[in-house]
Amino acid sequence: MTMFTVAALALLVSLGLVLVRVLKGPSIFDRVIAGNSVGTLSVLLLAVIGYVFGRPEFIDLAITYALLNVIGTIAVLKFFRYGDLGVGEDEAGS
Protein backbone atom coordinates (compact mmCIF):
# COMPACT_ATOMS: atom_id res chain seq x y z
CA MET A 1 0.00 0.00 0.00
CA THR A 2 1.57 3.28 -1.05
CA MET A 3 1.30 6.49 0.89
CA PHE A 4 -1.04 7.93 -1.73
CA THR A 5 -3.45 5.07 -1.20
CA VAL A 6 -3.44 5.76 2.53
CA ALA A 7 -4.15 9.45 1.95
CA ALA A 8 -6.88 8.66 -0.60
CA LEU A 9 -8.54 6.24 1.83
CA ALA A 10 -8.42 8.80 4.64
CA LEU A 11 -9.97 11.39 2.32
CA LEU A 12 -12.73 8.99 1.28
CA VAL A 13 -13.51 8.25 4.93
CA SER A 14 -13.70 11.94 5.80
CA LEU A 15 -15.77 12.61 2.68
CA GLY A 16 -18.24 9.99 3.91
CA LEU A 17 -18.40 11.50 7.41
CA VAL A 18 -18.88 15.01 6.04
CA LEU A 19 -21.62 13.76 3.70
CA VAL A 20 -23.49 12.42 6.72
CA ARG A 21 -23.55 16.00 8.02
CA VAL A 22 -24.71 17.30 4.61
CA LEU A 23 -27.55 14.80 4.59
CA LYS A 24 -28.55 15.20 8.25
CA GLY A 25 -28.57 18.99 8.37
CA PRO A 26 -30.40 19.93 10.57
CA SER A 27 -30.18 23.62 9.63
CA ILE A 28 -29.38 24.90 6.15
CA PHE A 29 -26.17 26.42 7.50
CA ASP A 30 -24.92 23.03 8.65
CA ARG A 31 -25.44 21.82 5.10
CA VAL A 32 -23.57 24.81 3.67
CA ILE A 33 -20.63 24.29 6.05
CA ALA A 34 -20.46 20.59 5.27
CA GLY A 35 -20.98 21.25 1.54
CA ASN A 36 -18.00 23.59 1.61
CA SER A 37 -15.96 20.84 3.26
CA VAL A 38 -17.10 18.39 0.56
CA GLY A 39 -15.64 20.79 -2.00
CA THR A 40 -12.34 21.12 -0.12
CA LEU A 41 -12.05 17.37 0.32
CA SER A 42 -12.79 16.81 -3.40
CA VAL A 43 -9.96 19.19 -4.27
CA LEU A 44 -7.61 17.14 -2.10
CA LEU A 45 -8.95 13.81 -3.33
CA LEU A 46 -8.47 14.96 -6.92
CA ALA A 47 -4.88 15.99 -6.26
CA VAL A 48 -4.13 12.68 -4.54
CA ILE A 49 -5.96 10.59 -7.19
CA GLY A 50 -3.63 12.11 -9.77
CA TYR A 51 -0.69 10.59 -7.91
CA VAL A 52 -2.44 7.27 -7.23
CA PHE A 53 -3.02 6.81 -10.96
CA GLY A 54 0.41 8.21 -11.83
CA ARG A 55 -0.94 11.25 -13.66
CA PRO A 56 -0.14 14.36 -11.58
CA GLU A 57 -1.39 16.65 -14.40
CA PHE A 58 -4.89 16.39 -12.90
CA ILE A 59 -3.89 19.14 -10.53
CA ASP A 60 -5.11 21.86 -12.91
CA LEU A 61 -8.61 20.57 -12.28
CA ALA A 62 -8.09 20.77 -8.54
CA ILE A 63 -7.35 24.48 -8.98
CA THR A 64 -10.64 24.93 -10.87
CA TYR A 65 -12.48 23.09 -8.10
CA ALA A 66 -10.91 25.25 -5.41
CA LEU A 67 -12.13 28.37 -7.22
CA LEU A 68 -15.63 27.01 -7.90
CA ASN A 69 -16.06 25.82 -4.33
CA VAL A 70 -15.71 29.30 -2.93
CA ILE A 71 -17.92 30.79 -5.66
CA GLY A 72 -20.69 28.33 -4.84
CA THR A 73 -20.50 28.96 -1.10
CA ILE A 74 -20.42 32.74 -1.44
CA ALA A 75 -23.32 32.62 -3.92
CA VAL A 76 -25.48 30.67 -1.47
CA LEU A 77 -24.64 33.03 1.38
CA LYS A 78 -25.12 36.20 -0.62
CA PHE A 79 -28.64 35.14 -1.46
CA PHE A 80 -29.18 34.39 2.22
CA ARG A 81 -28.07 37.83 3.21
CA TYR A 82 -29.63 40.01 0.54
CA GLY A 83 -32.54 38.00 -0.83
CA ASP A 84 -35.86 38.19 0.97
CA LEU A 85 -36.13 34.44 0.89
CA GLY A 86 -38.71 33.17 3.31
CA VAL A 87 -36.72 30.29 4.72
CA GLY A 88 -38.91 27.72 6.41
CA GLU A 89 -38.68 28.03 10.19
CA ASP A 90 -37.68 24.42 10.67
CA GLU A 91 -34.62 24.90 8.44
CA ALA A 92 -33.58 28.44 9.35
CA GLY A 93 -32.86 27.98 13.02
CA SER A 94 -30.49 25.42 14.40
Binding site: R31, G35, V38, G39, V76
Partner: peptide, 8 residues
Protein backbone atom coordinates in the same frame (compact mmCIF):
# COMPACT_ATOMS: atom_id res chain seq x y z
CA UNK B 1 -31.00 22.37 0.95
CA UNK B 2 -31.55 20.85 -2.51
CA UNK B 3 -29.27 23.49 -4.08
CA UNK B 4 -26.52 22.82 -1.52
CA UNK B 5 -26.92 19.07 -1.99
CA UNK B 6 -26.77 19.61 -5.74
CA UNK B 7 -23.44 21.38 -5.33
CA UNK B 8 -22.07 18.48 -3.29
Amino acid sequence: AVVVLGGA
